[in-house]
Write a protein that binds this DNA or RNA. Structure first.
Lengths: 328, 328
DNA sequence: CTGAAAGCGCTTACAG
DNA sequence: CTGAAAGCGCTTACAG
């Protein structure tokens, strides 16, 4: 079923059929009606592939995702896909398992004439050399929630550094003085920036950072790190977890250890995943403004050229039950 | 950068360039080498859009997802995308918010000449009339983990009915006699089949089903339903939750109520999400064999025509700590 | 406003 | 094995 079939059915030229489906094309309302009716009868739909070929605009945006352990990312992914649809774009989903190069995945995507690519974090740091300019080569590439120093890629992130400072301030404000950071993947900018902010504020306040073990953004790790901390006799009274998933592990470990939250120890996370709101946790956290970040990402990719890199969005404090003292 | 550019660089015809990139094409190793080298130098990649147009095979498969509240689905989605890539297909991600018709989403996808579509469940039941044959119209459509009676769609599911029976048997085996089902979305086949299996087995055993409240596949609902059950004085000693997410809510409610698991009450879930394995839950559950289901889905879509509908995979018992008695 | 025609970048008979 | 040519289903100057 092609536009030619429709043109015959409607008694017009094939060009007219094309115009009827092109918003803003010069075509009389009457002709458009006839074409649309004929198309309806025949169940015709324009072939987006053919259109892409001639217009040189595929309308396709690559979404590259790694492991989806952290519930923050499926949500980001699905909201991004929706936002893309709202702009008339299509999302091509590509997975990246961390073993191969992101560049390879991008190359594969590029054969579909993608207009842009959004990379959702995995352990990006392991492959920076290849993530240089050749990658962008024509298509804008945006890192969501990661930054790669020394590379000229677009990027939209939460202000992790400021979030780290805020976490320190809040924990300090709750009265805690024996403070620990339970990190995530130490090779990621999110981990690094949050830690820098946290440690920086503490240093300025003259408070020692008790410990900062790091390994992975995972529940199990949060639990184990907390257990280890106590085995080592460190017994912090304030813990900043690198993200919410880790924080949940921290909280469950504290439960096992019999330490009361927030009476004995205050805990704060980062991300704002729905799970943290559950009655079993009531996690106080710094929420990433996902809606804004996604809007901004699309703006960076498709809007007028602006600052090429590192758009930062302040996190929002979500005050629940795991940090002691009064809400600031 | 087109095949013509490469042909000039390599000193061959444009056809030769095409053949060099077509596996199994008749081309001398020498010519192929020359072309590939030239392509490498110029950074050429075949245009998949143009290829799709002429071969009439886009290699694109639509993945239609709704809300991703249940962590089971992001995982299914990402594994499906990977499995597709392994077969040389591409995943076009489309969202379906439940307000609009699935048919609309599919129509939009079809303009990209998709070769197949996989629909991940949302509240599908609300739109059955439109999910008829016109939808399949050329492209095979597969419902993942849902069945739509009266429609001739492909479908791959866990054997929910058998799973429900197993849950009843296990709970009964643990000594429980006051049994409740905490349902999910009552309009879905997963909810319905699990309940039928559960209630059926109990009926045969002559055990009364205490209650079967249902609303949504969500943590909060699991919690609320359990609280309600106890407020109503029902105090079950065995609970089958419609899925794991609901089961976690059930467990947290029981914790709040001070009822010990599995001493006072046994709980079993369905799905096998990683979260259920956490120390805070140790949920006994019936795991859906995701890998097998995905393989089977691809087989149904791209393999030789087989039984058109309703492939069922038995769930696997994952014995952890929330059902009393010995492991069967 | 409308139609005939060129052309987007490929694949694939066809002839050699 | 190789090249010239037709054609996939569209959009878009171009002329009317």
């Amino acid at each position: 079923m092609t536009s030619l079939d429709v043109s015959r059915e409607a008694g017009v030229s094939q060009s007219a059929v094309s115009r009827a489906f092109t918003p803003g094309a010069h075509i009389s309302p009457d002709t458009r009606r006839r074409v649309l009716d004929a198309a309806e009868r025949l169940g015709y739909q324009p072939n987006a592939i053919a259109r892409s070929l001639v217009t040189q605009r595929s309308g396709i945006v690559a979404l590259i995702v790694g492991e989806l352990h952290n519930p923050f990312y499926p949500q980001a992914l699905s909201q991004m896909a929706q936002a893309l649809e709202a702009r008339g774009k299509r999302a091509l989903l590509l997975t990246h398992d961390g073993r191969r190069d992101v560049q390879e995945t991008l190359d594969a995507a590029r054969s579909y004439q993608i207009e842009a690519a959004v990379v959702f974090p995995t352990r990006l740091s392991s492959t920076p050399p290849s993530l240089g300019d050749p990658l962008t080569d024509g298509v804008p590439v945006l890192l969501f929630n990661r930054q790669l120093p020394g590379h000229d890629l677009l990027s939209v992130s939460c202000d992790n550094h400021a979030g780290g400072r805020l976490a320190a301030q809040l924990l300090y404000g709750s009265g805690a003085r024996r403070l620990a950071f339970v990190g995530g993947d130490p090779d990621t900018s999110t981990h690094q920036d949050r830690l820098r902010g946290f440690a920086g504020w503490l240093a300025e306040a003259g408070v020692e950072l008790l410990a900062a073990p790091a390994r992975a953004f995972q529940y199990d790790w949060g639990m184990q790190a907390t257990l280890d901390l106590h085995t080592a006799g460190l017994r912090p009274d304030g813990i900043f977890a690198a993200n919410d998933i880790v924080a949940l592990g921290v909280l469950d470990a504290l439960r096992v250890l019999g330490r009361r939250v927030p009476d004995d120890v205050s805990v704060i996370g980062f991300d704002g995943i729905p799970e943290g709101a559950r009655a079993a946790y009531r996690l106080t956290t710094i929420r990433q403004p996902l809606d804004l970040m996604i809007e901004d990402a699309l703006e960076a990719l498709f809007g007028p050229p602006g600052p090429a890199t590192g758009r930062l969005h302040p996190g929002e404090l979500v005050w629940r039950g795991t940090v002691g003292g009064a809400q600031p």
